[in-house]
Design a protein around this nucleic acid. Structure first.
Lengths: 345, 345
DNA sequence: TTTATTTACGCAAACGTTGCCAAAATAAAC
DNA sequence: GTTTATTTTGGCAACGTTTGCGTAAATAAA
């Protein structure tokens, strides 16, 4: 029934030579005569010989697979990142093992443990909103697994990183709002401990400063689970709007939060942009079809995944441990939509 | 530098017993005395022993990993399916190796070959729009790899399948349009060879028949790459609309095509639903925020992935080869939006 | 012819497990 | 106190590779 794949042993037996000769012939070793090589290579092609990756792994102690820890696959941003990762990994002959933290620190630790036990060669990670302790990552690093962090990086851990220019993105979009006469701009973000939150907040602050506006803390709100929990975003938005000091614009720091705003405004029939302008970071490719079309900071997600994977594989395959780390920063793109139309004064 | 994981050998040496005793003690074999078991288990815990999955795989010829072939990860439908697959797979201790066909038959064949060479235990697949020859799948099956097809199944291949009730979904949405007084309903779909196209077309036809309407072939259009190629959908839509026989409603057979319609209408300033109603299959979770909100047939994508993975793992782990195949059909949900508002007569 | 050199290949160990068989060690039966 | 049964353990091979080392045969130099 089951068709067993040909092994080096089979070839050796069939050709009446030793397994080592076959192995060396296939790897084009100089020790083997051209005639024998030809014989072996031809026969191998004939029986469709494919080296058994598992045996290879056992021997070389390299599994040719990399682990990935992301908050959630079905988040558009991460699914595009994974797309990029898969492409690069496949190109270099690596498998990708994906795990999801669902924005939980516990899950993230479990994932790190799971990946370590699955004998990966290295790891790509974007930390959860709940993570403040990074020892599960340093553990991995100490056990010899290189880690490349992307997007939500762990700032004080060593290693390569790939991020977008978060500060610049937030600065640009906030400046855009300011130029369009908005002055009471709310900032809705993941928890402040998260790298992307901190950076984006910097950009937001910088833009306000250029207009001589002080940060109004009552307009800065955090969603501690990136809006994963039921009504989490709605609750925070209520706080923001059931208030005398209402904003006239919002910057959503993530895809989920930006969309949550839009849904909230629709639910409570708050007109965008007439009553409030809406902008934010988003990676959906249909923000132009939303109602209204959204002004967003777009991130090169796929490219980020590809670069992170390449960096990781480069590290894995380098002979000597690196001491210099690369910190790639990708540019963002501001896509202007109807949701931030100039405010009439 | 590199911290090497403890092996059974290390434990055996440290405890002065043989590797086989350690192995059996850890697997709680009845042959080992309680005292020894305790000793071994304690020590193993102490050094944080984790069995090496690669050595295990080599021994048992099971890799505990499954392959997945999908058209494209960043397609929302498939990323949700993969979410489900990952959850089920992780639960049962399996890795998932994802490959993308990008709607190309060549890629799909390559993927099948790649997966086979990576020693997977089984495979989940959703075939590309371009696939008419299924021999790369039957090859895998003959080599002993069970395959579970989902969504876009290969109808005449044996094996478990998981689909949604495609016919019913198309029937419901078409009936909805008919009830709302639309009569010239276009059907925009992937190529007719594709399983989901055929089934959905059946449902569409059935609904028309109930209203005594014959299928107008000029209102049935196919996109041979699910709209992956530049302007493919636009070109087809032009054919549909630069015509005397214009439709008054469209049923998009896939997520991509439905969205492509909306974009087309926006670009050419065709008002939805005043000039044309738009409905279709879609798995985006923000169809309610589109302009206008979309009437869609929603599929339980995550559940589909989970069930398909469970079915596959069940097959892999069953002792005797199955002869009975399960064909799961999941119900769809019709979400009504503004895009198909009753037509004023 | 003898000795040195090269060429081409085979042997065996190793990677971390498990499974089979046999060997101790202990317990039970006579 | 021997024989037999039972429990507990160790040794070895195997999974499919790669690789260091050894060596026979072929060739070249003496």
């Amino acid at each position: 029934m089951r068709f067993e794949a040909a092994t080096i042993k089979d070839i050796a037996k069939a050709l009446g030579i030793s397994t080592s000769t076959v192995s060396r012939a296939l790897r084009d070793s100089y020790e083997i005569s051209e005639a024998t090589k030809q014989l072996v290579v031809d026969y191998a092609k004939n029986v469709n010989y494919k080296p058994n990756p598992i045996a290879l792994s056992l021997k070389t102690k390299k599994s040719k697979s990399i682990g990935v820890i992301v908050p959630e696959i079905s988040n558009n941003f991460f699914s595009e990142v994974i797309n990029g990762i898969e492409c690069a990994a496949n190109y270099y002959g690596y498998n990708v093992i994906i795990t999801q933290s669902f924005e939980s620190y516990e899950n993230e630790m479990d994932n790190a443990g799971f990946l370590a036990s699955r004998s990966i060669d290295g790891c790509l990670a974007s930390v959860s909103t709940q993570t403040t302790n990074f020892s599960h990552f340093t553990d991995l690093q100490q056990r010899g697994f290189p880690i490349v962090f992307f997007d939500r990086i762990a700032e004080n851990l060593e290693g390569h990183t790939v991020t977008i220019d978060n500060e610049e993105g937030a600065y640009e979009v906030t400046m855009h709002l300011l130029r369009n006469n908005y002055r009471k701009i709310a900032f809705l973000a993941d928890p402040p401990n998260l790298y992307i939150t901190a950076k984006r907040f910097e950009g937001y602050k910088k833009a306000l400063a250029r207009y001589g506006i002080a940060v109004d803390e009552s307009l800065v709100k955090y969603c501690y689970h990136d809006g994963m929990l039921d009504n989490e975003a709605e609750y925070v938005l209520q706080e923001l709007f059931n208030n005398d000091n209402k904003p006239d614009a919002v910057v959503g720091s993530t895809d989920k939060l930006t969309i949550a705003c839009l849904r909230y405004f629709k639910k409570y029939k708050i007109k965008v942009p007439d009553e409030i302008a809406l902008t934010g970071f988003s990676n959906l490719d249909i923000t132009d079809l939303l109602c209204p079309s959204l002004t967003v900071v777009k991130q090169p997600a796929q490219r980020m995944g590809k670069l992170a994977a390449q960096l990781l594989i480069k590290t894995i395959e380098s002979k000597r441990p690196l001491t210099e780390y690369e910190n790639l920063v990708l540019p963002v793109e501001l896509k202007i939509g109807e949701s931030s139309r100039p405010k009439l004064l």
